[in-house]
Amino acid sequence: MTEYKLVVVGAGGVGKSALTIQLIQNHFVDEYDPTIEDSYRKQVVIDGETCLLDILDTAGQEEYSAMRDQYMRTGEGFLCVFAINNTKSFEDIHHYREQIKRVKDSEDVPMVLVGNKCDLPSRTVDTKQAQDLARSYGIPFIETSAKTRQGVDDAFYTLVREIRKHKEKMSKDGKKKKKKSKTKCVIM
């Protein structure tokens, strides 16, 4: 069974824990209790493949930012979460993405942009803004509501699919490099 290491990042209060708990335990946590770091595991079937999701729910508070490099190193894919009623959390996505790329030393890291709290009427981040940002990053965008469960499975499952595509691409690139290195030079 394939294991996928997913990391949920975003500013404090955007609903990272609520999304994760909704996926794992099928219930909505409405009281806000700032996370330092929590880890969850769940076995699911995605596109006919049974897999184990190892999900790291991270601290959004700035005082825990020193811990970010460590979990970013171990993560295979990242859910970059903002709240649709919090423009600052949307603007912060850029910083999370840049930090992930720096730590992973790669421009090509599996990510999904997630606009959470889409059940709320007080939207300050337009869907088109988020779609445009995701398009500019070359990553999928999904709106979710941890409260109603809308888009929750889709967000995590899409990230797994992005990781699969990335692994497939990397193995193809690896095979191309191996083929090239088999060419021999004969000096007579």
Rank of each mutant, 00 (worst) to 15 (best):
E98D: 07
H166C: 11
Q43K: 09
E31F: 14
D30W: 03
H166D: 10
F141S: 06
C80Q: 06
A59P: 01
L19Y: 03
L23H: 13
R123A: 11
V81W: 05
T158A: 14
V14S: 10
F78V: 02
V186K: 13
G115M: 12
K177A: 09
F82C: 13
L53P: 03
D153G: 07
V7K: 05
Q150K: 03
E31M: 03
T50G: 07
G15Q: 02
V109M: 08
I21S: 02
I100D: 05
C185Y: 05
P121F: 08
I24D: 01
K117W: 15
L52R: 14
I84N: 12
K128Y: 06
Y137H: 10
Y157W: 07
T35G: 00
A66K: 07
T2Q: 11
T87I: 09
Y40C: 00
K169M: 06
Y64I: 01
T50L: 12
E107H: 06
K167G: 05
H95R: 13
F28H: 01
D108W: 04
V109R: 04
T183Y: 10
D126P: 09
K169T: 11
V14W: 06
T2L: 10
K101G: 13
M111Y: 10
T2F: 11
D119T: 14
I84S: 13
V112P: 03
I187S: 14
R164I: 05
D173L: 13
D173E: 05
S106V: 12
T127P: 08
K184D: 14
G13N: 15
Y71L: 01
A134F: 10
D92V: 07
D132N: 04
S65W: 09
D38F: 00
G115I: 13
D132E: 06
K16P: 15
V160S: 11
T35L: 01
Q22A: 09
F82H: 09
K180T: 08
K42P: 03
G75T: 03
K175V: 04
R123S: 12
K117T: 14
V7I: 04
Y32S: 01
Q43S: 11
F156W: 11
V109W: 12
M188Y: 13
D57Q: 00
C80E: 02
D69P: 11
K167T: 10
I36G: 00
I21W: 02
A130Q: 13
E63R: 02
K165A: 05
K101E: 12
R41K: 14
K182G: 06
M188R: 11
Q129I: 04
T20M: 01
G115R: 09
K167Y: 05
D105T: 07
F28L: 01
D57P: 00
E98W: 01
Y32F: 01
Y4K: 15
K182M: 05
P121D: 12
A59Q: 00
D153T: 08
Y4W: 05
A11D: 09
K104G: 13
T124P: 10
D119S: 10
D119A: 15
D153Y: 06
N86G: 11
K169A: 03
H166N: 08
C118R: 10
L120E: 11
Y40G: 00
H27Q: 15
I139T: 13
R68I: 01
N26Q: 13
T74E: 11
T124G: 10
E37R: 15
Y64S: 01
Q129N: 11
V186Q: 15
V103Y: 04
P110F: 02
N116R: 04
E62C: 03
R135N: 09
E76T: 13
T127L: 06
S122C: 08
R149K: 04
I24L: 15
M72A: 04
E162S: 09
D33M: 00
A11T: 14
D108A: 09
Y4T: 12
D153S: 07
Q22F: 03
D154V: 06
Q61H: 11
A130V: 08
A130C: 12
K104Q: 11
V45Y: 06
A11K: 08
V9S: 12
V8K: 02
H27W: 15
L19E: 13
T2H: 13
T20I: 04
S122L: 07
S17G: 00
I93S: 03
D108I: 09
S145K: 05
Y64C: 01
F156K: 01
M72P: 12
L159M: 08
E37A: 15
G13S: 12
G138I: 04
D173F: 14
D92E: 10
M72R: 11
V114W: 01
K104F: 15
V8F: 02
D38G: 01
E49S: 12
C185W: 04
T2M: 15
V44H: 07
E76C: 12
E3Q: 13
I21A: 02
K165L: 11
E63Q: 04
C118M: 13
G13P: 15
T183H: 09
G48P: 09
G138W: 03
Q99I: 14
C118Q: 08
Q25L: 15
D132F: 09
D92R: 15
V9L: 08
V14F: 14
D33K: 00
L159A: 05
I55L: 14
T158H: 13
Q43W: 04
R41L: 08
T20Y: 00
S122Y: 07
H27L: 15
K104E: 08
G60R: 00
I24H: 11
K101L: 07
C51V: 13
L56F: 03
M67D: 02
Q129S: 07
E62F: 02
K101Y: 15
